[in-house]
């Protein structure tokens, strides 16, 4: 258990990358990219986790002296999620236009670019 969170994070990232490589549809590839990014959320939060600690939101039940998990990685993760959503939106918009102008979203059939 002591490294399980990290391994899950790494596995998710690689799964996403493999998914892009074998994708037959650009929308599928964009979604796989966002799955890959989910690995980074899991890694960051796993790093900041502490057993039997509360969330870093102080109030009536959590006093500043209570042990809490790391708020820094949570802030980084929030940034990461925003990046993920917005980059996904951009790439989806590009896929949509590609479908419109190429008439396909299969990367094997796209042929506008050759070395």
């Amino acid at each position: 258990m002591s490294y399980y969170g990290y391994f899950v994070a790494g596995a998710i990232m690689l799964t996403g990358a493999v998914g892009i490589a074998r994708s037959r549809n650009l929308v599928h590839a964009v979604v796989c990219l966002s799955v890959s990014q989910a690995g980074t959320y899991v890694l960051l939060l796993s790093i900041g986790y502490q057993r039997h600690a509360a969330a870093p939101v102080f109030g009536s039940t959590i006093k500043p002296s209570t042990k809490v998990v790391d708020p820094v990685v949570q802030a980084l993760c929030l940034t990461d999620i925003v990046v993920s959503a917005t980059v996904t939106a951009l790439l989806l918009a590009l896929s949509l236009q590609i479908a419109k102008h190429h008439g396909t979203t299969d990367p094997d059939e796209l042929s506008a670019l050759r070395g």
Binding site: M1, Y6, S46, Y49, Q50, V68, D70, P71
Partner: peptide
């Protein structure tokens, strides 16, 4: 290891 208690940046940020 996962879930440990050593988080210096956390302490400073709190």
């Amino acid at each position: 290891s996962f879930g440990g208690s050593h988080h210096p940046y956390r302490d400073a940020a709190i």
